[in-house]
């Protein structure tokens, strides 16, 4: 891997004051040479103060936007600061940052635009509940129908995109539960999406943003998002659709 690759690790954080320091420390240790950007999504528990004290690069949302809005802020920053790869990683310790560098090398070697860390390729580590796996399988089928690409772990929040799709996500990213429906969108824009086997851990702090009450809404909303993907008229975002050729200049500059 080239030494000069600029990589931004985006860590969305909502009320993660207790565990954020550990997460950041782990990323610094296991993925040296990357820049870390924590997006504090309007936390009320002093996450912002913790970040300030750590001297950690971060963005502060004055309101809670939800995971999609938080991650998108990270992509916007990555776009403007000229990063070549953006890594999305959860602030609760589920994702092991040790995979970041090898995943990027793998993406570069195989010309992959979006790499997804998947726990269902080798079935190791934390596998989530039976119901949830059934739901994920259903969504995976839906994604396959919508874009013809077979991805097992469609809801995985551990993902890496290159500069071209940093642009897309900076311009256009779903609000809540954005993981699944971003896949067909990337494919439709001519991107190559692939999975990389990772071992996930059970979350160290916080709890899943999706409890039982929300899971019905989750399934309906995400299914709709996937199905409507091709139906939605998207404004040609100048920053993305128009500048496919301008990519290289930008990176060199």
């Amino acid at each position: 891997m080239k030494e000069m690759t600029k990589i931004l690790v985006i860590v969305p954080a909502y009320n993660e004051a207790a565990g954020i320091a550990e997460t950041i420390g782990e990323i610094r240790e296991k993925a040296p040479g990357t820049d870390i950007l924590v997006v504090n999504d309007g936390s009320g528990d002093g996450t912002g103060r913790v970040l300030e004290r750590l001297g950690q690069m971060h963005l502060d949302h004055c309101l809670n936007l939800g995971i999609g809005g938080a991650v998108q802020s990270g992509y916007k920053y990555a776009e403007r600061a000229g990063y070549e790869y953006a890594v999305q990683i959860d602030g609760d310790g589920q994702h092991d940052p040790a995979y970041i560098m090898e995943m990027i090398a793998w993406m570069q070697d195989n010309g992959i635009d979006m790499g997804i860390g998947s726990r269902f390729l080798e079935y190791q580590g934390f596998q989530s509940s039976l119901m949830r796996r059934a739901g994920i399988r259903f969504l995976s089928g839906l994604v396959y129908l919508s874009c013809g690409v077979h991805i097992h772990d469609v809801t995985s929040g551990f993902r890496i995109v290159n500069r071209r799709f940093i642009r897309l996500f900076a311009a256009d990213y779903s609000d809540d539960f954005p993981e699944t429906d971003s896949i067909p969108r990337v494919v439709r824009c001519g991107g190559k999406v692939a999975e990389y086997p990772v071992v996930m851990r059970e979350r160290m702090t916080g709890k899943s943003s999706i409890d039982l009450g929300k899971s019905m809404y989750y399934m309906v909303k995400v299914s709709l998002a996937v199905l409507m993907n091709s139906f939605i008229l998207r404004k040609p975002a100048d920053s993305f659709y128009g500048q496919a050729d301008g990519d290289k200049d930008d990176i060199e500059a």
Partner: peptide, 17 residues
């Protein structure tokens, strides 16, 4: 409105940084 508020919050955060 929601989309606009989201953009505003994000831009404000980027500006603050």
């Amino acid at each position: 409105q929601h989309a606009r508020i989201r953009t505003l919050v994000q831009e404000a955060a980027l500006m603050e940084k």
